[in-house]
Design a binder for these strands. Structure first.
Lengths: 352, 352
DNA sequence: CTGAAAGCGCTAACAC
DNA sequence: GTGTTAGCGCTTTCAG
């Protein structure tokens, strides 16, 4: 900028004025400056600019896993909103690891991001207190912050969604509905379990721990849990799966258990083979997923993009000076019947 | 930092030393400084730090769409590598818009990112010349830069993959193989078309323009193209789809055309309905996708994570001072037979 | 309309 | 071991 000023025969400040389109610069002077800028290939250093101005025009986003469709949709929506506000976006994946979440957040804060959108992995966010004190704003998305951390949060109606999904199966005649959820320490998993229980209670059905299997959405553990569930003396006739990954892996596991779909190595069977088999089970999945429509899988759909958009809008409202009380948004879910959740239970043999 | 120095009764530089774990600080002094830091809630401003040091320890990633699984996998891998190098990551989606790509890249450059990873939407990258001159490094991923832009690039073997997929269908007896590709202006789409043509030529089959349909991966246009293809007097017996989105939308379109899968509103049919129907067609899809295994869809798989990892590794090699000649990596693809690509053509009626 | 001086928060280079 | 000085590239304040 100094060089440009020298080349144009003006003061530093005049260059600054031209670069920032500030009013009150003689057109001829501005032209000379522009010429010098082009000649020297000058480009403003926004890092220095933000240092001086106090705001970095950037926000940080911490999600669970950028490669997961749910979070990548959320991420995309945040990105869109940020760009719309002239903000750049730092992204990081916590991998469901509280320490990594904290490290990322603090790294973003050290860069003095104006705000944060956090899908928390941990449950202790006291580490954020100094950042809040320093004026950084944060909005939590998908899951709330830990106790003692006052911050805005945007959630899905996890309880209501799981309740609706479970009630849907019950309404179609099922009395033994199993729930395959994520790790119980994860907020959404716990909430969905709660919704499942509420629906059972509302229908006057007993809560049977033997019908609940919580754990990571990994093929091996799901196959084990499903084998156990289906091999029991009084097996479930319907399944509620707790998130997208779990639903997909459950379909895989069921296909391999019931043998009604080819493994990866089988060839030549398409399309005359049986469809991915549920072995007579009804199924409702939490979260919509690619090709669920073709597979005919009934789901309780969240709207991850809306989750991201809402969180980002809220953040920018805060950054614009909105000092209202901390809020908690809860976005509705939508049950989409596609066949798998509307199958009746098989005729019961045990009681005539 | 000044306040901390004053509180600890030391000079600014000593605080800097402590904060950066520089050697040569008396343990007792360091303790006093740490105490002051904790008391005042001081946190280093990395923005100022990077301004002074010349490197921002951040890189920028421009992809086509963060919500697309292909790019989100690539993105995740880049993120991982960046974090591993102590770098933060700016992300932006170009939405297949050259102007947006340019704006994002230049915005990242204005923040003085150390390097860039770009999945280009445009074909003119002369706008990067001043940035290269200023020392910014860039690696292109998935698609090469436009003419006149000397930069490293990491690609998939698009030609080879499409050739292999087409040859696979031909080897299973198909002589009329259609190609459903993306917009021809997109590098990967053009390359895959080339691979398709090469395979036809190698097998001595004629290239029939009527069997090729290039366009956006949108349901309406795919349905139209498929209807046209299948309604022709000499319809294809096999399909090669040009990318993941296209494959998925083709499955949808075929299901709705052949009527062998329920629409979203149909219920109660699962799992006794017919599987997503190909109406007797064989199919190979470019790109693997979620549940392709269950659906029995044969694919030519790319490895987007490896694409991202390779690009990021290359970038950090460059940032570490590697001044070798510009390189062009080409990662192999892998044909995964799952059934849909191994179906023989129906017996021909036209020639006995 | 334009310019000079101060300083955002930090580190590099050199004193002591 | 520790402190002093200068300056990264920009904007802000105030003076001309």
């Amino acid at each position: 900028m100094n060089d440009v000023a020298a080349a144009a025969g003006v003061a530093l400040k005049t260059v600054s004025r031209v670069v920032n389109n500030e009013p009150g610069v003689n057109a001829a002077t501005a032209l000379r400056v522009h010429a010098a800028i082009d000649r020297l290939g000058y480009r403003r250093n926004d890092s220095a600019r933000t240092l001086r101005r106090g705001r970095t025009a950037s926000i940080g986003l911490v999600i669970e896993d950028a490669a997961d469709v749910f979070y990548s949709s959320l991420s995309r929506a945040v990105e869109e909103t940020a760009l719309h506000h002239g903000c750049l976006l730092f992204t990081g994946s916590s991998q469901e690891d509280a320490a990594r979440e904290r490290d990322l957040v603090l790294a973003f804060c050290a860069r003095r991001v104006d705000g944060l959108i956090i899908v928390p992995a941990g449950t202790d966010h006291t580490y954020l207190a100094p950042e809040f004190e320093a004026g950084t704003r944060a909005v939590f998305a998908d899951r709330p912050p830990g106790a003692g951390c006052e911050a805005d949060v945007v959630l899905s109606d996890n309880v209501g969604g799981a309740r609706a999904g479970t009630a849907h199966l019950i309404a179609h005649g099922h009395r033994r509905v199993a729930f395959l959820g994520d790790l119980p320490r994860i907020f959404t998993a716990a909430e969905r379990l709660r919704g499942y229980r509420e629906a059972l209670a509302a229908a006057g059905l007993p809560y049977d721990e033997g019908l609940v299997a919580m754990g990571p959405a990994e093929p091996a553990r799901l196959r084990a849990d499903l084998t156990r569930l289906l091999g029991a003396s009084d097996p479930p006739t319907a399944l509620l799966t707790g998130n997208g990954r779990t639903t997909v892996e459950t379909l895989r596991a069921l296909a391999s258990i019931t043998g009604s779909a080819p493994g990866p190595a089988t060839t030549g069977a398409f399309p005359d083979r049986a469809p991915p088999g549920l072995g007579g089970l009804a199924l409702v999945g939490f979260d919509d997923f690619e090709l669920a429509d073709l597979l005919g899988v009934t789901v309780v759909a969240q709207d991850p993009a809306r989750l991201g958009r809402t969180a980002a809008d809220l953040l920018f409202l805060r950054l614009a000076g909105d000092g209202g009380a901390v809020t908690r948004f809860e976005l509705p879910t939508r049950l989409i019947p596609r066949g798998s959740g509307e199958r009746p239970p098989p005729p019961r043999r045990d009681r005539g």
